[in-house]
Simulated scan of single mutants.
Amino acid sequence: MNNPLGGIIPDQPPTDPQSNVHELKSRLEWGEPAFTILDIRDRNTYNEGHIMGAMSMPMEELVDRAQSSLATSRDVYIYGETDEQTSQAAQQLRSSGFEHVSELKGGLPAWKAVGGPTEGILESRTPAGADDYNVVSRMQNHAETQQK
């Protein structure tokens, strides 16, 4: 059951095989439940910086760790070093029974380009932009980008 709050929060549309960072950011900003973000890069790279809230599941451990910790019906957004690596990892998850896997196109660089929240050793040393906490400005930027 992906929506434990029944009719309070509308059901989400099916997860697309590929997503852009705007779609994920929108889900996070609206507080939508029941999805997981997986970072498949190596542990050191993950520790340097990653999407806030993403779980580290390096490529070589991905399927085993995902099967032991996630329901196969859960919405999963996945990203790696490159879109090619992300696509390979997504295919591994789909082949092992995961039903709702979406490849996050552009990965961490695309996420940072739209002002998505990050965390990690290097990220903590980078000050937030002036408009990072201005929700109105971010929503206007998001709407303009969606129109392009």
Rank of each mutant, 00 (worst) to 15 (best):
G116H: 06
G116N: 06
P117H: 05
P117Y: 06
T118L: 04
T118A: 02
T118W: 02
E119W: 11
G120K: 01
G120N: 02
I121S: 11
I121G: 00
I121R: 10
L122F: 11
L122Y: 11
L122Q: 13
E123G: 03
E123K: 03
E123N: 06
E123I: 02
E123Y: 02
R125A: 14
R125W: 14
R125F: 13
R125C: 08
T126G: 02
T126E: 12
P127G: 06
P127I: 09
P127V: 12
P127S: 10
A128V: 13
A128N: 15
G129W: 05
G129I: 04
G129Y: 06
A130K: 14
D131Q: 07
D131R: 07
D131M: 11
D131E: 14
D131S: 09
D132C: 09
D132V: 03
D132H: 07
Y133M: 10
Y133I: 03
N134T: 00
N134V: 00
N134D: 15
V135S: 05
V135E: 06
V136I: 10
V136N: 07
V136R: 08
V136A: 07
R138T: 02
R138S: 02
R138C: 02
R138K: 10
M139C: 10
M139G: 00
Q140Y: 08
N141V: 02
H142D: 05
H142C: 02
H142V: 02
A143F: 10
A143R: 06
A143W: 03
E144S: 11
E144K: 11
T145F: 05
T145L: 15
T145H: 12
T145S: 08
T145R: 13
T145D: 10
T145I: 06
Q146C: 05
Q146W: 10
Q146H: 05
